[in-house]
Write a protein that binds this DNA or RNA. Sequence first.
DNA 1: TTTTTTGCAAATACTTTGCATAACG
DNA 2: CGTTATGCAAAGTATTTGCAAAAAA
Lengths: 150, 150
Amino acid sequence: MLLTLTEPADVQMRLDYFETRCKELGLRVTRQRQEIFRAVAQSDKHPSAEAVFLQVRESMPNVSLDTVYRTLSSLEEMGLLMRVGLSSKARFDGDLRPHCHFVCTQCGEVYDIFPQENEQIACPLPARNIGEIKQINIQFKGICKNCRPQ
Amino acid sequence: MLLTLTEPADVQMRLDYFETRCKELGLRVTRQRQEIFRAVAQSDKHPSAEAVFLQVRESMPNVSLDTVYRTLSSLEEMGLLMRVGLSSKARFDGDLRPHCHFVCTQCGEVYDIFPQENEQIACPLPARNIGEIKQINIQFKGICKNCRPQ
DNA sequence: TTTTTTGCAAATACTTTGCATAACG
DNA sequence: CGTTATGCAAAGTATTTGCAAAAAA
């Protein structure tokens, strides 16, 4: 049987890696950071900041919500966790043809990417077992040419 | 040359369809709705609610931001435009293995979908011309089995 | 001891809501 | 004319920030 990310052995391994990564980057290994990282690493529920806060508060009643926000952001920058979807404000698209989006993480700009003639947008998978799919959304995150000209 | 969505002829066609759709659904065709829809339909910039508001205000100085929000939501429900990415609050994922997400639009739950053995997650396209891709994000939106049991 | 991080409180950003008036059909 | 949609103002979430005190190295 394969180990899943939520098993204790794996979580411990990732906590160790987290410490290594902190030292590499000159960030301090605080109990708050450890617990916040642990909360996300051992959950498979894609928790919100609020949910992480509630979880961490069980073992650390004095932790504050703003520390959770700050820490989640730095863990993301450190490459230790991901944000699901786009955050911040909503953006709208009047073009309903199937296409992808490139989102620049620096300036926030959203660019359309239309599939080439011979390309197909990747589809379902075991998704049918989860529910009825109404829409597929593919985005690429990165830095656009305006923000980092070659 | 192909027509793009931002060309006047096409925008007019879509405005006509918008009216038809309103009538079908028993919604009134107000000037606000028309202008808000037009603003999104003729833009390729994936505008935020604020951006739509500023645009519409040029021709309609009295329009209010809350009408823009309300209208964008109903246009989305009517299937006339899409929201880019996930809105509302941020969710975090500690699992960095490549996988997709199924997001239930009813309860907000996020489910992981791991690609099968022989499946590959669809990749780039003309995206390289836009910038450097750091991350690929594939989400499916729909109604999960908990919310709509068969 | 020095510098980073935290918790607090307050501010900001984004979005939603109640209600009286205006506008559509 | 009857009902729906709008604008206003205010409330509600989600997230961020300044600063003094606490904690890590």
